[in-house]
Structure formats: C-alpha cells, structure tokens
Design a protein around this nucleic acid. Sequence first.
RNA 1: GGAGAGAUGGCCGAGUGGUCUAAGGCGCACGCCUGCUAAGCGUGUGUACCUCAAAAGGGUACCGAGGGUUCAAAUCCCUCUCUCUCCGCCA
Length: 445
Amino acid sequence: MARAAAGGRTHRKCLWPALGVSMLDVKLLRDDLDQVKKRMATRGTEIDWDEFVALDRDRREALANLEKLKEKKNRLSGEIGKLKKRGGDAAALMREAEEVSESIREGERPVTEIEAGFEKFMLRLPNLPNSGVSIGRNADDNKEVRRWGEPPQFNFQAKNHWDIGEELEILDFARAAKLAGARFALYKGAGARLERALINFMLDLHTGERGYKEILPPALVNRAALTGTGQLPKFEEDLFRIETPEYFLIPTAEVPLTNVHREEMFEREDLPIKYVAYTPCFRREAGSYGQDVRGLIRQHQFNKVELVKLSEPETSYDELEKMVQDAEEVLRRLKLPYRVIELCTGDMGFSAAKTYDLEVWLPGQATYREISSCSNCEDFQARRAQIRYRREKKGKPIFVHTLNGSGLAVGRTFVAVLENYQQKDGSVLIPEVLRPYMGGLEKIG
RNA sequence: GGAGAGAUGGCCGAGUGGUCUAAGGCGCACGCCUGCUAAGCGUGUGUACCUCAAAAGGGUACCGAGGGUUCAAAUCCCUCUCUCUCCGCCA
C-alpha cells in the first residue's frame, strides 16, 4: 500500500516541491511547443505562449546564476569549518562568505518573483486533449456514440418534474427559497425517500458487483485539494468559500476522492484504485443566470454519487470505458432512456483529456439532458496532486492517471424518474429496482 | 478553548551549529556462498530542478510548512499546520 499521509505525518512537502510546478510537463512544452500550441488551440482557449517562453527563459537564467552563488557559499563555509577546527584564523574567508551571502539574498528576490509568475501561468493552463478526441468548437460538434432505450410515448401531455413534484407534494421550491434562496429545493415525504433510495441503489450497485470501495469524505476541503484537481486557482468564483478557517464546499466528490492519495506513492499492484462516494455538492452557478431557473436541474446544492479511479497510464482508457459502463448500468437498471456523447475538444472541462457525457431523456423538456460526465484526466491531476507509483521496485516514479465520473447525479436522476415514470393521473410509478429501497412502495400519488 | 508531547528517507529510528551528499536497523535490488530451504556475506538503494545533444558527470534544493539569526541550521529563535495525551465544551 502507499505510504499513508495519515498516522502522524502530514504533507511532507509544499504542494509543488522545488520547481516541479507541473500540470503539463514543462519539458514537453519546451521541446515540442508547436505541437502543444496546436493541440491546445483545439480547446479554443487563448494562451500567451510568448509569455511562457519568456518566463521559462528568465527562470532558468536566474536560477543558474543563483545556484552558482550558492555553490560558492557552500564551498567557503566548508573551508571555514575545516580551518576553525584546526584552530586557524578564518576572518578573511568569513568576510568573503558574508559578501556571497549578501549577493544570494539579492539574487533570491527576482527568482522568487519569476517563479511565482511561472507557477501562476502553469496552473492556469488546461489539460491537453487526448489526440483521439475529435476537434470541435462547442457542444454542437460533440459526437453521439450510442443510444439505449426508447423515449416513452404518453397519450397525454407530459409534465415537467417541478409540476409533478409540487402536485404530489414531494417537492417544495417556494419554501426552500424561504430557507435559503433560489436554486434550493425541499424534498418531502416520498420525495425525500426517493432521493435516498436512489443514493442507496447507486452505492449498492457500484460497491457490489462493480467493485468500487465506498468512501464518505469531508464536504469541506482546503485550497490544496482543489488545486490538485484543477478547480483552483482558475475557477474560484464557482465555489462556495468559508473563511476563518478557510475551507471550500466541494463542487463534486471528485475533489476529495482524487485527493485521498495526494502526495503518495503506490506500487504497481495497488492499481487500479476504484472509489465511490455519495456526497452533497455545492456550486455557486455564477454566470448561469436564467438557465434552468425552475426545477431541480441546476441547484446550488445537489446530491451526487461519484466514481473515481487511479490507474496505470497504459490502461486508463480501458478504465474510462468501463467507468462509462458502470454509470450507464444505473440508467439501464432504472430503465431510463439515454444516449452517450463524446465531447469534442472545445467542450471539455479544464482537467479532462477525454470526456463522455451520459444524457438522459426528459419527457418534460422532450430532450436529452446531462446526467453524468466521465473523464480521463490522464496525468494532469496526478501532476498537480503528486500522485505517483513505481512500475518496478527500483523504478522511477510515474504519475498515475486519474479518472472521474458521475454515477450518477442524483437530483437529475430524480428528475428523470419523475418525468419518465409519470402517469396520466399525475402519479409516478417507482422503478422496480428502487422498490426495495422504498419499503415496497410501487407508486407515488 | 487550556496544558503538554511530537513531526527525520519506502518503513522504524539516531542525530541540539561545521566528518559537507543524515548513524543504525528493516525492506528492496544485484552479486557471492551453503546439496534444497532457512540463515549468512558483500555491494548498492530518495525526490525535484538546473547544466550537458544524450549518457556519464557536475550543481542546487528538500529532515511538517513559512520566516529569522549565522560565514554555516535537521540542530538555535518566531509564526503556522497536522498528530498524540489530558482538561473544558459539544452533535
């Protein structure tokens, strides 16, 4: 097993030891900048590459200078020590050493500044898309991979889940607004139980035959954790933050789960690691005013069952396919129609190298809506979080690949159940696989 | 919140100002030896960055984190974080 950070010891190093400020491999940028530019451009993000070249050059120059001075200082100090031991007079050497030390102090200031600038630049670079991902500008260029199930045909006008929920008195948005504000929900009675049933059903499926280990992590995390997975420093405005002491509410369990093994070293036989967690998730939804203002689709707080894997680089894409299957299986057992979308380069998230979205059919909107997003981040997060393993006992440490996927977003699954299982009389049938979790209840209303 | 103790390499653990690249042990790797096994002997054993076309080699940094004193810090001083013990409070 990996050396656990628990058990008396905390992080041994600062987040980025020495100058390993890596999210993308600095050497790759240096050696193959043209390729990197091209691939990064497919994301549609503007990046000032001249700034990178300048920062990198300045940094190396300043560093080389400083290190030369330090070498001299170390040499002089050694000589002083030996001389004193023999009882000699080291006054002259000490004067010289003092001057060198003074130069070092002066040289350190610019180096610190340059490195801070370099680090800031690097931490804001998104991941490189995997070369197999199709190039596109936005969601319109995404590819549908497959579909499962048939959208139900109703002989009545399909209702939105918020109407269904409020009429059945299992959802109450008005009172939730009284408690907190817009984008919060109150689940009541069978509604609360249905949400809980979904959580338990998903956890049982993933921990059972699918072999994930259940984790119940903190819902508040620190800055280092969010930097490790890539939410920080760039997306702070999307997060709820608590001051004194500073904590952030997790926007997804991907953050705590991926960071469980931050700054740890694995052996090959430890991998892959498969975790599943149910947590509430919290998002500011800044900049999404006017979108999905009604209903459960876009909330400040929502429940999610999340899957995370740490794997060897060679198998990470197989693991991604399996993870998508694991998420799909939830929808299949619930008999909810869905399709699988492969995101194009322009539509992927900051940390992802490749992403599949699962979209569930919502009769109320007569459209497919995202219910899961499964990504391979390759070594992007592992670099930031320093999660490595040794392929051989004496081998060099290698960054693991990290994957995450919703399995599933519970609130949206709730929506899908209400809308797909609605009946003409306004009641909602309970999917068969959920009935054991609902005390045998077959229908709400 | 109060009082105290602690944080050292893959692991255990020594080390209170200069034998600089951290004793010793365990583990691991390679080699030797013993008819097999067990044991034994020898050698080696971190990470990151810079330099070099590459390798070799050289350099710098890292003993929880940050800052300070000093020619010189694992070692002295300050701040912080985390862990453990006791007290208080608390779901």
